[in-house]
Simulated assay, not measured.
Amino acid sequence: MSSAPASANLLKRQLKEMQNNKDIPGISCGLHKDNIYDWEVMLMVSDDVKYYGGGFFKARLIFPKEYPLMPPEMKFESPIWHPNIYPEGKVCISILHPPEEDKYGYESAAERWLPVHTPETILVSVLSMLSSPNDESPANLDAAKMWRENLPEFKKKVRKCVRDSLEDAY
């Protein structure tokens, strides 16, 4: 009998599935320091994605031992300017919030983490979030304000992030 927690076995299977799945272009995953609970992720954003197209963004998914009952944390290591990404890189989207009622009443429990989510659904949601920011509940207030009030300047700042991500990727 294996002494590894069930979450480790599930993550091993999900990592292997993601590495073998050619249906999701632009996502590459591997382990950070051989730790099944710490994934390195590369998002190669397709050119047709608004604003961030062409970028190569490095991120990490850190899974709790309670996974899949509790969500992982996702953090961009590449600098990225986005209303739903904190300045230090942590991603703020509903499906990564713990499965409980929102104390602020903004999200329903159904919008938050559910054990049916997988690393794949998280990363697909993050790719979608890049082109469709939610500026009503921002993690980066300055980016949200710029998104609403000065879209040309927002686009210029994002283009710099994309250029910088390309330099960091090589």
Rank of each mutant, 00 (worst) to 15 (best):
Y86N: 11
K65A: 12
M42I: 10
Y67T: 12
S165N: 02
W147Q: 02
E77P: 11
Y170V: 11
P72H: 15
T118N: 11
C161A: 07
S7N: 03
V162K: 07
N35H: 02
K12R: 06
A169S: 15
S94H: 13
L114A: 10
P87R: 14
D102C: 03
P68Y: 05
M44C: 10
L151G: 06
K33Y: 05
E107T: 15
L166W: 01
S78Q: 14
K156N: 02
E88C: 15
P71T: 14
Q14E: 03
F56V: 06
P152S: 08
V124E: 14
A6K: 12
F63N: 13
E120F: 11
N84P: 12
P87Y: 15
K75Q: 12
N35Y: 03
I36Q: 01
L96Y: 10
Y86P: 12
P115N: 11
K160M: 00
A110W: 07
E107F: 06
I24C: 01
N35S: 03
A8K: 07
M1P: 03
A144R: 01
P83S: 10
Y106A: 09
S128M: 13
D38N: 00
L130T: 08
P83V: 09
F56K: 07
L151Q: 04
S28K: 02
V49G: 07
I36F: 05
L11V: 01
A4L: 02
P138L: 09
S108H: 09
E88W: 15
P71L: 11
P99W: 15
G55I: 02
T121G: 09
P87L: 09
Y104G: 06
L15K: 02
P25F: 01
K75N: 11
A169I: 14
P133A: 01
S128G: 15
P72R: 09
G53R: 06
V126D: 15
Q19P: 04
S165G: 02
I85C: 14
A144E: 02
D34Y: 07
S28R: 01
I27H: 03
Y104I: 10
K50H: 14
F57Y: 08
K65G: 11
K65F: 13
R159E: 08
H97K: 14
D164C: 06
E136A: 09
T121M: 09
I80Q: 14
G54C: 10
K90F: 08
S131G: 13
V158I: 03
T121F: 09
E167T: 02
R112H: 06
G55N: 06
N150F: 03
I27Q: 00
E40P: 00
E101L: 12
V158W: 04
L15V: 03
P5T: 05
S94V: 14
I24Q: 00
N140P: 04
Q19L: 04
K65S: 14
L61S: 03
V126S: 12
E17L: 03
L11C: 00
P115F: 11
P25Q: 00
E40W: 00
S137T: 06
